[in-house]
């Protein structure tokens, strides 16, 4: 069972963005993403909101499929900035991996 960390958004803020909390999981980012597979990037944003660090680290490879093209950020109706949240998650993962 995955543990949640309610302070994870603060960690993410230090990694560059705190807008992920605005996401209401509408799925516009999934529809517009050129990867067009699964629930990327929405799923990662939900993990970030929940602070499901273990799941993020377990599925970290998925983050590097992101092209950082910014189309999700451009079209997000909530201003949740999914592209930058994904980039912040990459930074979090790289920092975790360097620490270990």
């Amino acid at each position: 069972m995955a543990q949640v960390n309610p302070d994870f958004m603060e960690t993410l803020r230090q990694a560059g963005t705190d807008t992920g909390a605005e996401c209401n999981n509408c799925g516009t980012c999934v529809a517009i993403c050129p990867l067009a597979e699964g629930h990327f990037p929405r799923l990662m944003l939900r993990y970030a909101q929940l602070g499901a660090q273990e799941l993020i680290l377990d599925q970290a490879q998925e983050l590097w499929r992101c092209l950082h093209c910014g189309l999700c950020t451009q079209t997000c109706p909530r201003g949740a900035n999914p592209g930058e949240v994904i980039l912040a998650l990459k930074r979090f993962v790289v920092a975790s991996w360097r620490r270990s």
């Binding site: 050129p34 990867l35 499929r65 092209l67 950082h68 093209c69 189309l71 451009q74």
Partner: peptide, 25 residues
């Protein structure tokens, strides 16, 4: 502002993915 990606940024981690996105664009 609504341009689509050429796929280039993915070529370091997955040339296959990059090619698929590029073909779509």
């Amino acid at each position: 502002a609504y341009t689509s990606c050429c796929g280039g940024p993915a070529e370091a981690v997955s040339p296959r993915l990059s090619a698929r996105i590029g073909a779509g664009r």
